Simulated assay, not measured.
Amino acid sequence: MNLDSKIAIVTGASSGIGAEFSRMLVKNGSEVYGLARSKDKLQELQKELGDAFHPVTMDVTEADKLEKWVDQTFGRKHQPDILINNAGIMRSANVEDLSLDEWHNMINVNLNGIFYLTRLIVPLMKANKNTCHIINIASIAGLLGNPTISGYNASKFGVRGFSEALFKELRYDAIKVTCVFPGSIDTELFSKIEGIENHPNMMKTTDISSTVKFLLETDDNYLINEITMRPLNPKNPNEKE
């Protein structure tokens, strides 16, 4: 895919890798609709990126509002080529200390939100004459379980299963589906896990966005449906052994 003049949707676009995806896409000529709950952060990003970035204040768990926005924004003459489902939250606690609200919020944002938006975008992509691409951002936590993040694990394992089924469902409609499994990234998300502090050996947001750029720019009949990314040395270099 040539990213120039493509129409992209990025969720969780106001910070972290979502903001970096938006920068990468705009830099390469795409028009980006960036969805997030933080209106202020989205507006700051628009000041940086210009008119090619459209800030959309939206909670991906609100299915009715998503449907209304999609209906008002896209149509036969304005179809999305790229969907990056990136919005995600993490709560860290032992299972007996994890509240029902925390569990439900992770499932709703990390898994249900992907379904709510994807089901609306797929028909538009099927009508698109171009090869399209859906990228679901999971996590290494979608492959390996770890103590204190059981809810996050459950939601990201779900993203992997959804992505695998979707890839097989849409491959003959010229719609690629890729599930991305990053390890530790230097963002706010990882700083919320008990016992983990951000450090220089974590991956950079630009590491992830450059990999997603490569995935998007592959030839139309070439698909990488899953990709795992890790720091080579994940240890904090500031810690004394």
Rank of each mutant, 00 (worst) to 15 (best):
D186I: 07
A165Q: 10
L117F: 02
N94L: 13
K213A: 12
V180W: 00
I9V: 10
N105A: 15
G195M: 07
T61K: 02
L120I: 03
G50E: 03
I121G: 01
N28D: 13
A87R: 00
Y33G: 04
N86E: 03
F74G: 00
N238K: 12
F181T: 04
G183H: 06
T211A: 13
L120P: 00
A19S: 13
P231H: 05
K65S: 08
T73M: 03
N86R: 07
G142P: 09
M24D: 01
V56H: 10
S5Q: 14
I82G: 02
M106F: 12
Q43A: 13
Y33Q: 06
I121L: 04
H104I: 08
Y152V: 04
M1P: 14
W103K: 06
G50S: 05
N128M: 03
V212I: 15
S30P: 11
Q79D: 04
C132G: 06
R160W: 09
I134C: 06
H54S: 12
E226C: 03
I196P: 05
K27F: 11
I121P: 00
G158F: 04
M203G: 03
L170I: 11
L124R: 01
E188T: 12
F115R: 07
R160A: 09
E48A: 14
P182D: 01
G151F: 03
